[in-house]
Design a protein around this nucleic acid. Structure first.
Length: 200
DNA sequence: TGAGTGATTGACT
DNA sequence: GTCAATCACTCAT
């Protein structure tokens, strides 16, 4: 992998229609798309290689017990960033799906670094590429994503998901990681050929 | 395998 | 209003 691939960064943001597909479809099809983060420090981009779906009536979904101040972004319009803080030290990044009032989302769990690698290394304090973005909290730290981004449109200048990307040749469906409720549902999707997924 | 960390929430006065 | 359990994780051991 060399420097940033300009053709990939020239892709348009995903249209709102993308986020109106069934969430399980969106979680699968978001693989291969490009997450771009622009800040005063520079541009960072990565190819999405791992995602999980969180659905309505899904006990593991933050919104399953109704709307609260924390999860209210999930109840809003599709194509927004839902960013939440967990375990006292980690931020996680989701893309909101479904029309306003239907609280579903896709958790982005891992990226393959494409651009801004030096900036990511500085933020993460590690140099090994595989450790930069192979985990939901790692990638938010590398991209400088925190609560300030919560609710941002995913076609904005500072934060966007571009596509359609090059779909992975092989996609694996597996149970989601790190949850207790509904832990058996195979709603995690990842690129079988990527070295950058968080867990195999 | 478990320690670290703090916002969030539901169950209580 | 207070309190304690919970939590979609990471890192060092």
């Amino acid at each position: 992998m060399s420097a940033a691939n300009p053709t990939l960064l020239d892709l348009p943001p995903l249209p709102v229609d993308f986020y109106l597909q069934p969430t399980l479809v969106a979680a699968r099809e978001i693989l291969g798309c490009i997450l771009v983060r622009r800040s005063v420090e520079g541009v960072i981009a990565g190819r999405i290689v791992e995602a999980e779906a969180y659905l309505l009536n899904d006990p593991a979904c933050h919104a399953s017990r109704g709307q609260t101040p924390r999860n209210s972004v999930m109840f809003g319009p599709p194509g927004r960033a839902y960013v939440y803080f967990t375990y006292g030290m980690h931020w996680c990044f989701n893309a909101v799906t479904q029309p306003e009032g239907v609280a579903e989302a896709v958790l982005i769990r891992a990226l393959e670094p494409l651009a801004g690698i030096e900036l990511m290394q500085r933020r993460r304090g590690v140099t090994e590429l595989r450790l930069l973005t192979s985990g939901p909290a790692r990638l938010t730290q590398a991209l400088g994503i925190d609560g300030a981004v919560n609710g941002t449109r995913l076609d904005s200048e500072t934060l966007a998901i571009l596509g359609p990307g090059r779909a992975p040749a092989r996609i694996i469906e597996a149970p989601r990681v790190g949850i207790r409720q509904a832990a058996d549902l195979p709603w995690r999707f990842y690129d079988a050929d990527s070295l950058f997924i968080s867990r195999r």
